[in-house]
């Protein structure tokens, strides 16, 4: 049991949209092992992002439970959740979400900037090291506007790693990138997974980056089913993005 890092049971999330209630998740179950490289695929509106937010301690579920390292996080208050995010989770977003006025270095430092447990020198050193790891050692003082899309996502990956999290959640990390750059980003994430043992949970449309022995969860109508690349191909989910 110890190697399970996140476990969601009977997870429900309902949204109110005007008069109607949208059931984004209606009893999803998922178990993610430490150090795994997991894909979550599914059509638009299937609840992928919702699941991601719940697993990443960004939101409260309507029902069910989410355990991180065996600890129930679904009932935590906002402050406790922000502590979880700060200490255990790293995020990579489709639109990078870098602060445009800050340099790459400062963007990477951002998550721990208000953390008093780490000195600025230490934080800067760690951020520079991470930027080198993602191949941006020569672009430390550039602002996002001066970087290409791929470079921006590399900065975002470095930022996701700054707090040395166990889990990295990536929401469509290659959605804004061309396929060559996208492949490079996946290569980098796989490297982090292998070398640093980080758990990666990746929500994506792009099945082309999934390898045959990767764990793949298919989410449809608010429920999760474990599947594989082969099966996805059989069902016709192949190639580039679906129409959203």
């Amino acid at each position: 049991m110890n190697d399970v890092v996140i476990e969601a049971k009977n997870l429900k999330k309902y949204y109110k949209m005007g008069e109607t209630i949208v059931k984004a998740l209606r009893g999803a179950n998922i178990k993610i092992k430490k150090g795994s490289f997991v894909f979550i695929v599914g059509p638009s509106g299937s609840g992928k992002s919702t699941l991601m937010h719940l697993l990443g301690a960004l939101d409260h579920p309507t029902g069910g439970s989410v355990k991180m390292d065996g600890k129930e996080i679904s009932k935590m208050d906002d402050w406790e959740l922000s502590m979880i995010r700060r200490n255990k989770v790293g995020f990579i977003f489709q639109t990078f979400n870098l602060v445009p006025s800050l340099t790459a270095l400062d963007n990477v430092k951002l998550p721990l900037l208000t953390d008093k447990r780490i000195s600025d020198e230490e934080l800067t050193a760690r951020a520079i090291k991470l930027l080198k790891v993602v191949g941006l050692g020569h672009r430390i003082y550039h602002t996002p506007n001066e970087l290409s899309g791929g470079e921006r996502q590399r900065v975002a990956i470095a930022r996701a790693l700054i707090n040395n999290p166990e889990i990295i959640l990536a929401d469509e990390p290659t959605g804004e990138l061309d396929s060559k750059t996208g492949a490079e980003i996946f290569e980098l994430m796989r490297k982090m997974n292998k070398e640093e043992g980080k758990t990666f949970i990746i929500v994506t449309h792009d099945t082309e980056y999934i390898k045959h022995n990767d764990t793949v969860y298919h989410i449809k109508d608010g429920v999760i089913k474990e599947t594989s690349k082969r099966e996805l191909e059989k069902n016709g989910m192949k190639g580039k993005k679906e129409i959203t």
Binding site: W79, S82, R85, F91, N97, V99, L110, T114, N163
Partner: peptide, 19 residues
């Protein structure tokens, strides 16, 4: 708004933002 949202997502507390 988006930047603050990102800060919150990466673990900033409301107190940090308030400050």
């Amino acid at each position: 708004t988006k930047e603050f949202g990102v800060l919150k997502a990466v673990g900033w507390e409301n107190d940090d933002l308030l400050k």
